[in-house]
Amino acid sequence: METKTETTTTWMCDKCHKALVSQKVKVRYLEGNFEVELLKCPTCNMVFISEDLALGKILEVEKSLEDK
């Protein structure tokens, strides 16, 4: 899964009070396993997914995996 996502954001982790950092994150759906750069909390690892990403690139990849 190739993707260009936001590398900075004003959102921060509410629990750890940390700014989010862009890091490689594992994602999977059906037979697909990918590593993508996503924003996450450097402490608790909670991954941030924006609406644009969820309904854009992620949806597109989900659909193409479903049709494989």
Binding site: V25, K26, V27, R28, Y29, L38, K40, N45, M46, V47, I49, E51, A54, L55, I58, L59, V61, E62
Partner: peptide, 13 residues
């Protein structure tokens, strides 16, 4: 203020 969803699973570790 907003709701959305995805099926792709994100591995948080």
């Amino acid at each position: 203020k907003d709701v959305y969803s995805h099926r792709m699973e994100v591995v948080e570790d």
